[in-house]
Structure formats: C-alpha cells, structure tokens
Simulated assay, not measured.
Amino acid sequence: MDQQVKEQIENSINNSDVCLFMKGSPEAPQCGFSMAVSNILKILEVKYQSVDVLKDQKIREGIKIYSEWPTIPQLYIKKEFIGGCDIIKEMFENGELKKVFDEKGIGYKK
C-alpha cells in the first residue's frame, strides 16, 4: 500500500468518531453485509462517516492491509478497529456494541 492511500485511510479514521468502510453508501449499500452494519448504526441513530470502497480500488485493498482484516465492511470507533459484519451483528445482539459506544463517549439511541 502506498503512502497516499495509507494517509487517505488514516484521515477518514482520524477525522470521524465512527467510520464505516463499506461497499456503496448508507443510502444505497452495494452488498448485504455493508447494508447490515449501516442498518445497525441507523437503528442506534449513530452519527458516522462512511467510505465507499467501490469508488477506489486502492482504498478497497488498502483498508484490508491497514486493518489486517480480509473483508469489508469494517467499522472503526474512535480510531479503533471494531470488526466486520459478523462481529458487529453479534455485538449489537448481545449489547456489547452499546457498551463500546458508552465507553468511547459516542451518542446513540438508548
């Protein structure tokens, strides 16, 4: 991954408390996994930034290297990689995701 791609990824993560790298946009997800995670964030009314990895192949591949995680979507909260779709769904279902938002001071619908 070149330095410019790394900086773009880091800027997205650093400039938003909650950042979701996904395929498509929250309004028009381009895969079911991305839709599932963005829907969870919508249900919780969490303000977040999304990055459409389909718009830039270098970002799409670079985020996988950056996080050492092979799949998209990827959720970051306060610069920390939280996980992909399966992890986020499980955390949402068992209440862990709300705990992370509480610990990191992120507002959501309680």
Rank of each mutant, 00 (worst) to 15 (best):
E61I: 09
K99T: 10
A28S: 15
C31E: 04
L75Y: 06
K78F: 12
F92G: 02
K64W: 02
G84Q: 03
G95V: 00
M91K: 09
E27V: 11
I40C: 12
D52N: 15
E96K: 13
Y66L: 08
W69N: 09
N94P: 00
P73F: 05
C31H: 05
S67F: 03
A28Q: 15
P70A: 09
I40K: 08
K55Y: 05
K98R: 15
G32K: 01
Y66P: 11
I87N: 09
K64M: 10
P73I: 02
D86K: 07
K55L: 14
R60T: 07
N39E: 12
P73M: 03
C31A: 11
G95A: 03
L20G: 12
K79P: 10
Y66F: 15
I87W: 08
L20Q: 12
K55Q: 15
D56E: 08
K89Q: 14
V53Q: 07
K98L: 10
R60G: 01
I65R: 06
Y48D: 11
K89A: 13
L54K: 01
E96T: 12
I88P: 00
A36V: 02
G95T: 06
Y76T: 04
Q49D: 14
V53T: 10
S25A: 10
F81E: 07
V53E: 07
E45C: 06
Q74K: 00
Q57G: 00
C19A: 08
L20D: 13
I87K: 06
I82H: 10
Q57L: 12
M22G: 05
M91I: 02
Q57C: 00
R60A: 06
S67G: 07
I63G: 09
T71N: 05
M35N: 15
E103T: 14
V100Q: 01
F92H: 14
I59Q: 04
E103M: 11
M22P: 07
K104C: 12
Q57M: 13
F81I: 08
Y66M: 07
I72K: 04
K104L: 11
A28H: 14
I82R: 12
F101K: 13
K55D: 10
I43C: 06
K78Y: 08
R60W: 03
G62H: 01
I77Q: 09
Q57E: 14
G84V: 03
Y76N: 09
F21D: 05
I65T: 14
W69L: 01
N94S: 00
V51M: 11
G32V: 06
T71E: 05
E93M: 13
K89G: 02
E80V: 11
K42T: 13
L44K: 02
K99G: 04
V37D: 04
F101S: 14
K79E: 15
K47Q: 15
Y76W: 09
Q30Y: 11
G95E: 02
K42S: 15
E27C: 10
V51P: 12
F81L: 11
L54Q: 07
I43N: 14
G32N: 06
G83L: 10
L54F: 08
Q49C: 14
I40M: 11
I88F: 05
F21Y: 12
S50K: 08
I77H: 11
